[in-house]
Design a protein around this nucleic acid. Structure first.
Lengths: 211, 211
DNA sequence: TCACAATAAGTGACTAAATCACTTATTGAC
DNA sequence: GTCAATAAGTGATTTAGTCACTTATTGTGA
């Protein structure tokens, strides 16, 4: 029904009672269906206000909200995965980017200095914008999903362990490589950037993880 | 509660009525909660039998089951994403693999000739086993999730357009590179392998997608 | 003894009619 | 014109019960 009506994030759904009538079931049954949609962030409930379409409608990859983030070693696991995956994405961005992509990337690089928005507006996150410049939506979604794994930890990392100015400088250099259409440089700079973060993080955790 | 009890996929949960008593709510409320868990494949209902823990409990990345797979061009989009992401994963596998990883990879390469199991047992899928050999669980989960995007299309591709024998030969050469600890060869072979599939697919679709 | 249909208990699926909790726009007094 | 009271609309939950399905048990007949 959401698709048929062409609803976008932010739009309101009909009320539970109305949906119950329309589908000829009772409200608890409707609510079960809506809860499933809620679990994948397709809709969101606002008590007393209504149910609204959320960002998940056009997100194919997502992070399981029902898996606890207990083991602390997985922060490094995550960085290791990003170190493998993101450099080639950056190379693809350098090879494929449009002028619009470049403009968006530049903007997000500037916004990196005030990262409080990054959690609400994922498209402003530098690494998401970088993946988006590849022109492949699925690549963008993949990076976006990875950044939501252990999101709490990643926010803490950004706020405590990373050097803001160095981060920004790294980003600017990556933007230059993408601007110049230099895939190898973009990949190498992205790898170095992530490796630096990993090293800083590993140092604070006190242990190196060999693999 | 699933975590606390250490339940694994296949284990049964308490009945809805019992859970309702335990959490001091009524059954419709319990069912809403369970429906959310069902949406991310943490549990699964079996009418008349019970509710059982499913594979999603230890899967951080997953594919949104509530997004329709309508646009046909996204099959190529998916292949393009895999061409970017999987070669470096193969390289990581060549660099990090253990003997156990190699054994599992060899086994899955043999099973590729009878791919009917691949849909039920994802760990037997060659590309998943390859990602698993990197030693990084998140990389494995990423590839696993990508392979579930447009899963129906991908099955059809395997059954109709790909050359079984050539596929198997490609896989064996990748295994050799991983065995020999040659990251560059593993990456290059994986890229060629996926490019070949993409070309075959693009030909049947009649159009090349430049980006 | 064995095969197999009937049975009964346990389970999820769903209904019905309410009530409570919260939000929001409207209204009306100051 | 401001702001508190109001009322309507919404989601959240309850209660008590019925229906549908599965599965193990039981008892019958060959």
């Amino acid at each position: 029904m959401i698709e048929a009506a062409g609803l976008e994030p932010g739009d309101a759904l009909a009320s539970s009672r109305e949906l119950a009538k329309r589908f000829e079931v009772t409200t608890p049954t409707i609510r079960e269906a809506l809860r499933r949609l809620e679990a994948t962030d397709v809709i969101r409930f606002r008590h007393g206000s209504g149910t609204y379409v959320s960002g998940g409608v056009n997100r194919r990859l997502l992070v399981n909200p029902h898996v606890s983030e207990s083991r602390s070693e997985s922060v490094l696991e995550l960085l290791d995965a990003r170190i493998v995956l993101e450099p080639p994405v950056a190379a693809a961005a350098a090879a494929q980017r449009t002028d619009d992509d470049l403009a968006a990337l530049t903007m997000s690089a500037d916004n990196a200095l005030k990262p409080q928005y990054a959690d609400e507006r994922p498209e402003l996150h530098f690494h998401v914008a970088l993946a988006g410049a590849s022109g492949n939506l699925l690549l963008r979604e993949t990076v976006e999903a990875l950044l939501q794994v252990r999101a709490r930890d990643q926010i803490e990392i950004r706020h405590r362990y990373t050097d803001r100015d160095r981060d920004h400088a790294d980003h600017l250099r990556i933007v230059e490589a993408v601007r110049d259409g230099d895939p190898d440089a973009a990949a190498a700079l992205t790898r170095e950037h992530l490796l630096a973060i990993r090293e800083a993080l590993a140092a604070t955790l006190g242990t190196e993880q060999p693999r």
